[in-house]
Design a protein around this nucleic acid. Structure first.
Lengths: 268, 268
DNA sequence: GTTTGTTAAA
DNA sequence: TTTAACAAAC
């Protein structure tokens, strides 16, 4: 059987809220090392990879590896029934066709249990190699959210350029053009407000803002986000979920790449 | 003539907001004992019974019994014009075709009066016998609201089971199944958070969630709600409106009743 | 932490 | 128009 307990149920709620729009359905792969999910978004453009470590749970037991096919919309509906302060326990028998979710209020006054029907989903588990990236940028997740939201109102794609000067987000559209630059800054008042640029090599890549914007739904999960960039490779947008694990979003760059996309690409 | 004055006008506003969706029109029956209303909802499925005692008002006078036909949507429009801190006075001449509402701000700075046109409505006053119920449950009204709202996202009907263990709300639908259990609890920090189960006999009845959900519109009126259950009889959902009186909602159970509705009634 | 009101989006 | 997200107040 599989059983996983997390005291801070709000984390699970936020996770599913962050993913449900991108991933309509996917497999929760559970093993004795924890719970993971890998799924393409419905348009097969970007990849979501969730890893929750066994030791990040307050209790974790998995006798046998399982792939549980989850309809994220339905899981979201059920998690909406959990209080933010509830302890959540996930439970499934081996080869079960349902996942049981138990919600317990802090004072045990209220106990709810929900059975979520599981689906059978083709899993195409991709090995994602650990990469050495040309640039790794850590920045406040709220800042990332703000930038991609703002730029979305100007253009459809963004050129992200990392240099030793800082990281620049550029777009253009009918309205005009826009550039937002963040400088390396390791000493703000609060550590969550740091912007750290770890640069091996300058890099500039173009991405569809729509997806970068969607990734920012994970903002409530973590105060910081990490962007990893290498020429011709997908960007990785990663949120650390406390001690539990992380969510990573992968998005391939636009092929018409980095050399000549300064001010005037409105006519695409 | 009829004249009734209530210092805390917000109570009247909340009352009408709670009822107006269920009761599009109904008679305010006034007599020297107070004001009452009995009305079926527009689909003739459930019954609303409002009782406001004469001595709950700050001033009450009724020379002659009257049935004042009220269009609740219009009354709501007028009450929206009253401040929450206003004193409200209802006034009508004998056999008048209009009800006058006066709003006075606490410091008398502002005085408004509105005339609401009355309608002639067939009144079908039902005698509702005082019943001995198998189970009476008092619980926080916010908890009731939360449960029926949550379960509405899973299924259409709810099985309410009262046992000495507690009270359980169960539903099922396409997503899966759901059970929420509340335990008897007379000693939380605050008295409004008590859950009191007064059980003469275990009982389990099924109801349409849509209506139970609608009843919860009365939540702002009272911190606690009382559910009264007896086999084959309508559930009573009752809100005590301070010292003024009470609102009671009656809803008949589904006929396919309590014996075999545990886990697997998805295929309805 | 909960509620309410406002605003944005579907 | 309805509903969900966000912010502000309690």
């Amino acid at each position: 059987m599989f059983e996983a307990r997390i005291t801070q149920g709000s984390v699970l709620k936020k996770l599913v809220e962050a993913l449900k729009e991108l991933v309509t359905e996917g497999n929760f792969d559970v093993s004795n090392t924890g719970l993971s999910l890998q799924a393409m978004d419905s348009s097969h453009v970007c990849l979501v990879s969730l890893t929750l470590r066994e030791d990040g749970f307050d209790h974790f037991r998995c006798d046998r590896n399982m792939a549980m096919g989850i309809h994220f919309g339905n899981l979201s509906k059920i998690l909406k029934c959990a209080g933010n302060e509830d302890t959540i326990t996930l439970k499934a028998e081996d080869n079960a066709d349902q996942l049981t979710l138990m919600f317990e209020s802090a004072n045990q006054d209220r106990i709810s249990d929900f059975d979520l029907k599981l689906m059978s989903i083709e899993s195409e588990h991709l090995g994602i190699p650990d990469q050495d990236y040309s640039a790794e940028i850590k920045m406040p997740s709220s800042e990332y959210q703000r930038i991609v939201r703002d730029l979305t109102s100007i253009g459809d794609t963004v050129l992200i350029s990392a240099t030793k000067e800082g990281i620049k987000f550029s777009t253009s559209g009918d309205v005009g053009t826009a550039n937002v630059t963040l400088r390396h800054n390791t000493t703000p008042e609060k550590p969550e407000e740091q912007t750290i640029i770890d640069l091996k090599e300058p890099v500039a890549l173009t991405f569809a803002l729509r997806y970068l914007n969607n990734f920012s739904k994970a903002t409530p999960l973590a105060p910081q986000v990490k962007l990893s960039l290498t020429k011709d490779l997908p960007i990785v947008v990663e949120y650390q979920v406390g001690e539990l694990g992380s969510v990573r979003f992968y998005l391939a760059p636009k092929i018409d790449d980095e050399d000549n996309m300064g001010e005037d690409e409105a006519q695409s």
